[in-house]
Amino acid sequence: MATPHLVQYQGSKRNIASEILSYFPKKINRLIEPFCGTAAVSILAAQQNKVEKFILNDINKPLVEMLELCIKQPEVLYRQYEEIWNGQFVEGTNNIDYFYKMREKFNEKSEPALMLFMLARVVKGAVRYNNNGQMNQSCDKRRNGTRPELIRNNAIQISNLLNNRTEVYNLDYREIVLKAQPEDLVYMDPPYQGTSNTSDNRYYQGVDYEEFVNALKLLNDKNVDFIISYDGMTGEKKHGKDLPDYLELTHIFINAGKSAQSTLLGKKEITYESLYLSKNLKCVYENRAEQLKLII
């Protein structure tokens, strides 16, 4: 059965979520995502009945509000999105101009359905903001965005999976880390090194490396298991610096497929996502490695 998702979202772990879940411990009280994005990992974990309770958080408030409305009131999100989506086909309307009109409206009101429409129509499903925190990503002129009926179908499925067992927050990730307790699992997919605080921002704010390391140390001290997606490699080029050895993490690489950027440059390079497992999950990694040997 296909796993539902609201919209294409750059940075989403939807394509490698099943691989990430293969390193989950057997017993989990709650799955906590301090950088949830569109919650691809939690949605799949719910679909596979691996977890009963969830905490979803993201610093991007419009994104969180979109996700929360999807979980609690999917029909409302669908109807609002449908009205916006249909507006681009009104007679005499240029749908490219319409997108920029809706982007201006989004920057004024930041409504959940407008956020969904933005993601459905921006280039590569990528969120970009200027220094004033306003979305400035361009319109993808090749498509009109996800059809409303598909949005409705996926939103209802996501709601069925997550409603009444999910807490949704818009806080600094460090506040969410403080909520974690033993037997919780924290999955973190922070902004990668080099993608924030540049001339081409993807996020409201980046994550300071040292502060992030301190948050991981806190989880270790509290004996909370965690898994981190953080940078990786494209071909032989490594992105970002590794997390420190004293955290006692198991560092593995997941094949995320061909690099789109390299393909545009005429190269055939594979992107490998770094995955770090906290020290208590080393046994899960070893068991999975042994299983893969038996399959081969």
Rank of each mutant, 00 (worst) to 15 (best):
F117C: 00
S42H: 02
L161T: 07
D208R: 00
R128Q: 05
A180Y: 09
M233F: 14
Y169M: 09
E211Q: 11
K124A: 15
E91C: 13
S138A: 15
P191C: 10
Q134W: 07
F24Y: 07
S199T: 12
D208F: 08
K241P: 06
L281P: 00
I20P: 01
E68S: 12
N130V: 11
N136R: 02
Y276Q: 04
N15H: 14
I20Y: 06
I28V: 09
G37M: 00
L294H: 08
Q88T: 08
E183Q: 06
R103Y: 06
L292H: 05
F212K: 00
V207T: 06
D221Y: 09
R121Y: 06
N154T: 07
N214C: 13
I59K: 10
P62G: 08
A180W: 06
N201K: 04
V127R: 03
E211N: 10
L119F: 03
I227Q: 04
Y203Q: 01
S110A: 15
Y285C: 02
K141M: 11
S22N: 02
G87D: 08
F106G: 01
G87Y: 08
G240Q: 11
A256D: 07
R174L: 10
P191D: 11
V207E: 07
S262R: 09
N86P: 00
T146L: 04
G92T: 07
N160I: 09
A126G: 10
L185N: 03
D140N: 07
T234A: 13
E210M: 12
Y285H: 01
M233A: 12
K13A: 14
S199Q: 14
Q47W: 05
F212R: 00
L69V: 05
V224S: 08
Y230G: 07
Y209M: 11
K50I: 14
H239C: 11
T250L: 08
N15A: 15
W85Y: 10
L63C: 07
K13D: 14
S259L: 03
Y246D: 15
E33P: 02
A17S: 03
N49M: 15
E33M: 01
I228M: 03
N132P: 02
R103K: 04
T166G: 06
K50R: 13
S110D: 12
Y129K: 01
V177R: 05
L114C: 05
E211T: 07
I32W: 00
Y230M: 08
T38S: 10
Y187V: 08
A215K: 00
D97Y: 12
D231R: 00
D200N: 14
V213A: 04
I295F: 06
K237T: 13
P112D: 03
N223L: 12
R165I: 14
I20D: 09
F106C: 03
K50D: 12
A126C: 12
L162E: 06
A39S: 04
L119K: 00
K101T: 12
N60L: 09
Q291N: 15
